[in-house]
Design a binder for these strands. Structure first.
Lengths: 144, 144
DNA sequence: TATCTAAGTGGGAAAGAGTGGGAAATTAAT
DNA sequence: ATTAATTTCCCACTCTTTCCCACTTAGATA
């Protein structure tokens, strides 16, 4: 189970260290995809395969399923974890998540997320403010 | 499985490099057809056969399926991948997708697509703007 | 406190990928 | 049949990517 928050630098060769705590779980090969709220998702091959399978079931005929397939497939990247635990984030994903030098890498259950540091800090602020409200809503639907 | 996004130049001899990552999957011979949303589709012979079969099975009574078949078949072209991974895009297909110097080549599961760079950027913008839509769809494929 | 180890960062060299141009070969035209 | 034009093949240059090594920092241990 992936938990915790780490701040690492992405260098000008687009290399980014996976937190040491994540490496055993993530293994030697990962898949990076566009996420939500302009972060990136990182999956193990196993998790990615599940997604792939669901996606490839959708038909080419419908314009909105085409666009979603393109978003996910064209937006995805297979990355080898190098000998010292780094992955390579392709330019187009780096831009998508607006990754400058400092990135925040967080564990979210079965996936890892990569954020621009500032974006993450802002996001956290907003969420923490809303935490009480969110709890209320979740309570109403019986989650907590 | 074909994933990722690459920007390559098509030269004045209509030569276009397939991304190195795609070459093993695509092999030595491919089929290029006019695609949907003004890009080109590129298939392996195997995938092309599947498409052929599906199209020929579709009921010919229906005018829509007839015209789509014509669109795909009449515009299709077989292309050899040369010794350093380039394909030749025939003039009429190049015009159809409005390919200028810079092209974007994307992997979409079982097919490759070739886009005019600007057209692709515009298309992506439109798709990504529909963020809530994306969230919903990610839910449907079990990502979140 | 000093030393050791592990983790993260950065840079240089080697390998690979992408691009462009010219020669050879094929086709077309006079 | 000769010339011109187009296509194909091959080579070479350049830029990017990958691999390897070294430095730095932080934390742990004695």
């Amino acid at each position: 189970m992936l938990i915790g928050e780490y701040t690492h630098a992405i260098d000008d060769k687009n290399r980014l260290s996976l937190p040491a705590k994540f490496r055993k779980i993530m293994g030697k090969k990962v898949y990076i995809t566009p996420g939500l709220d302009s972060c990136l998702f990182v999956f193990t091959p196993k998790e990615w395969e599940k997604i792939e399978e669901k996606l490839s079931q959708s038909s080419m005929g419908q314009s909105d399923s085409r666009s979603f397939s393109r978003h996910m497939f064209a937006g995805a990247s297979e990355a080898e974890v190098d000998s010292i635990g780094r992955i390579l984030v392709p330019d187009f994903l780096r831009e998508k998540a607006n990754l400058k030098s400092k990135c925040v890498i967080i564990g979210v259950s079965s996936r890892v997320e990569i954020w621009n540091e500032k974006t993450w800090i802002e996001y956290k602020k907003v969420v923490e403010k809303q935490a009480d409200n969110l709890a209320e809503k979740l309570g109403q639907v019986g989650v907590i």
